[in-house]
Nucleic acid binder design. Sequence first.
DNA 1: CAAAAAATGTTCCATATGGAGCGATCTGCG
DNA 2: CGCAGATCGCTCCATATGGAACATTTTTTG
Lengths: 152, 152
Amino acid sequence: MKLLDIIDGTPIRYGYRIAFLTNFYREPLLRRMELEHGIIRPEWTVLICLSFRDGLNPRDICEITEQPRNTVSRAVTSLTRKGLIVPAADPADARRKVLRITEAGRAAYERIMPMFVEGERKLMACLTERERGDLDRLLDKLCRAVPGWVGG
Amino acid sequence: MKLLDIIDGTPIRYGYRIAFLTNFYREPLLRRMELEHGIIRPEWTVLICLSFRDGLNPRDICEITEQPRNTVSRAVTSLTRKGLIVPAADPADARRKVLRITEAGRAAYERIMPMFVEGERKLMACLTERERGDLDRLLDKLCRAVPGWVGG
DNA sequence: CAAAAAATGTTCCATATGGAGCGATCTGCG
DNA sequence: CGCAGATCGCTCCATATGGAACATTTTTTG
């Protein structure tokens, strides 16, 4: 008996399976990341953000990742201690910090990301090219619609 | 700037968006459930399992939900204290408990589940009937393939 | 049949997480 | 300018979570 077997017995078939996939794709990788690289989820999300756009504030990262401020604050502290990012004063606003990813930070990102890429490859291996295209389009539509209903 | 905006900058487009949808669909509902009904995630998964098939053991629930044993153990204890389930001795194996959902437990399930159904409705509202059919088929394929690669 | 190994559920402990509130700073309005 | 209110990041605290070890019971093995 597995979670899959009770999906047909629940009235939330879509939500259930999407959460199911997330559980099996993401959670094991997050645990491996912590074990093998000593990086935990909030730290990882900060690295991803800064890797995409350097010089963000903690506040920006809260907004992007929807994480609470204290969670981001802790991640910034620990990443700084590890030398993966460097916080600087924001000349325009003394309350803010400008966060910059270091070389070591980029290296950590480049070391960890392939793990998630490989996980995604396994996840998607069962689909044909055409099916991936369909899924891509559907996910895009679903994600773009989120801001319209979330919070309400 | 939102998470959506950096999706194109990441090499894990599918995994990212699936996790994104889970975050916005499930997490707010779990928080509301705790606030309004005093039920937390592990308790909810136990209720779902027993609602689908009464008389399961904690061990079965661990297997179905992939939750650690101590988490399920705690959920069983608290649900019992709340009168939502009743544990009995398993005559076939003295180590095991047979868990049965109570009337109050079923009532709680019937009260909470509509919240998740409504959340799913919002999530899926952007898709046409045809697109839902496509997504249904794709999710089915993805989920069925999970046991083949998970853990490896 | 006896001892080793596995299974089941619990407890202990370390840590991750989020809410609330704090001090410092900035903004808007008179 | 001066003050009320908003914003930013941090700390405190309560709780959720998972790993490891434990006692009890069952299964396997010699």
